[in-house]
Structures are given as C-alpha cells and as structure tokens.
Write a protein that binds this DNA or RNA. Sequence first.
DNA 1: GATTGATCAAGAATAATTCTAAATCGAGAA
DNA 2: TTCTCGATTTAGAATTATTCTTGATCAATC
Lengths: 150, 150
Amino acid sequence: MKVSRQDHYTDTIRGGVLRDTPQRRHVYDLLRDEHSHPTATEVFLRAKKGMPSISLATVYNTLETLVACGLVKQVHVDREPTRFCPNLEEHGHFVCEHCSRVFDIDLAAERSQQWSLPAGFTITHHEISLRGICADCAKSEIQNPKSEIR
Amino acid sequence: MKVSRQDHYTDTIRGGVLRDTPQRRHVYDLLRDEHSHPTATEVFLRAKKGMPSISLATVYNTLETLVACGLVKQVHVDREPTRFCPNLEEHGHFVCEHCSRVFDIDLAAERSQQWSLPAGFTITHHEISLRGICADCAKSEIQNPKSEIR
DNA sequence: GATTGATCAAGAATAATTCTAAATCGAGAA
DNA sequence: TTCTCGATTTAGAATTATTCTTGATCAATC
C-alpha cells in the first residue's frame, strides 16, 4: 500500500534536518518497487529513466542518506559492489553462484542472538551471507549440465 | 607444532601442479604465525621484512593461490579490503567498530546448517560477520567515554 | 645445457566509491 | 515577493583495492 510507504519515508526523512527532495523520493520509490538488490550503478541506470538529469553522485549520496536514515539496508557479498535492499526485516542473503541473483533469507528470530561471543563483547549489527545454487539454477543444471560454475 | 603445519602446506601445495616457492612459503608462514587477519597490503608489508624483494603483485597472487588451495580463507567485512585468515575451522568473524580488530567467532557446529532456505537451494559456503564493540574497547569506553565511535 | 611452463615483478589498467568545488534549490526571514 | 543561507545536486577529479599485462626469472625435465 502506497500510503504507509510514503508515510514511513516522510516520517523518517522529515523527522531530521533532511529535505524531502525529488531525487530522494525517486530513488526510494524505485528501491521499494524492486526486490532485486540493485547496486548503486543499477539504481542509477533505473533512476535515469524517470529522472534523466540525476547523477551517479546523487544516487550515491541518496543511498547513503537512506541507509543512514534506516530506510534501506546495505547488502555485502564478498567484495562485490554494495547492493541495496528495502527489506527492513531481520534477514540474511543468499547469492546464487550461477545466476548471481540475491535472495532474502528469513532468519528465525529466536536464532538471531545466539552467537557464542567472548565475555564483554557487544553486537551492534550482523550480516549473514550464504552462497550456493538457487532452485532455478539447480533445475536447469540438471537439464543442461555445465561444470564451469563460477 | 611446526611439523604438521609444514606438512599440511606441503601436501596441499605439492598435491597439485603448484610449486613450493620461497614466496609462497614465506607468506603462508607469516599468516600462520599471526592471527590478526591482515589485509593483502599488511601481508605485503610484513612479508617484505623477511623478503625485501617480494612484490605486492606476488602477495596478491600468492594469497589467491593459498585461498584456492584451501590453506587460508578470505574474510570480508563490508567492502573493506579483503582480509586473510589461517583458521580453517568453521567460524565467523566479529569486527570491533572501535579498534577495527577482527576476532574469530566459534560457530557451534550444530547451528551451521540450520538456515531456513526455500526448497531446492543448496549452500556451498557461508560467511557470518558480526559488528560491535570488543571487550577491551568496552572497558576503555567506561574509563574515558567518547561518543564518536565509528 | 636447452626447453618449457610456472612464477615473479613492475607498472598500467580497472572499477567502485569518495571527494571537491561550483551551481542550484528551498524554506524561512525580512 | 525577494533575500539569505545552508542543504543538495552535479560533473569530474581523486582515491584505492585489486586485476591485468608483459617481460624476466626460475626450476624441473628432456
């Protein structure tokens, strides 16, 4: 529902000193509508369709702002380009080594704090990333197998 | 014990087509002796002490080779420079946001496969990285608090 | 000793991201 | 409305980790 999305964006953006600019709204809406975990460059390319004048620097700035606001999350896969994710729920990511798609993985809430840390350590953030083969690719592998995965 | 270390290195390196070169042995020994998860550049700087002629390119090549052999693992922390780790046990990493040190975190074996994946997905690899404040920094924070963590 | 393929070294190239500096914009003050 | 000032945007330069290229070197085998 569009209303609550706009509200969350508006509340968060307007709550601070930040301005609700066309660029920010455009990038945010774009991210909310896609669940493909785009990179900054991909966001830039998609953003240009509806706003041809937007610059890559603005996309980087905007994404940084949205992350700082907590409106989107960064996803890191090895040292590949950072991806951005509008899913604010507790979750990890699965990257298919064959098609490179990134999938959200639900993390059972009860497991999230069960790390056996040494005494005195405090967690502020965690990132779980899994690699492997997704169901689609596993299926097509069976039909036309190729050994050169990766 | 030095013997088993050398054996593991030797077995692995000699098992394939790979040569046991002074550079490779030097870098490997260096990594085994430190548990500080150095970056390629840090490995390079340390390696130069015992082998002044070694080049950064060789360090990169060597690390890549050792990773491919399974003798060391890569550690990724966001998009920071890749770090290298001689701990082959199943483990994750904790990065202190204050001192930037990286700590190995034991992952209870029974937990390692408990991800609730969609049907048909296969995991080949996973990386768990936690962020927070380590015990040392938590202690010194109490003594002279600074709000500008990060 | 010659050959051959692996390895090494130096520096160029790449690519994601950040920085810089100037132009523009927008909200509130006058 | 017009002014002002700080936030934002933009283009392009700069940074930085890493990879690539190319020629030199080395070590095992012929």
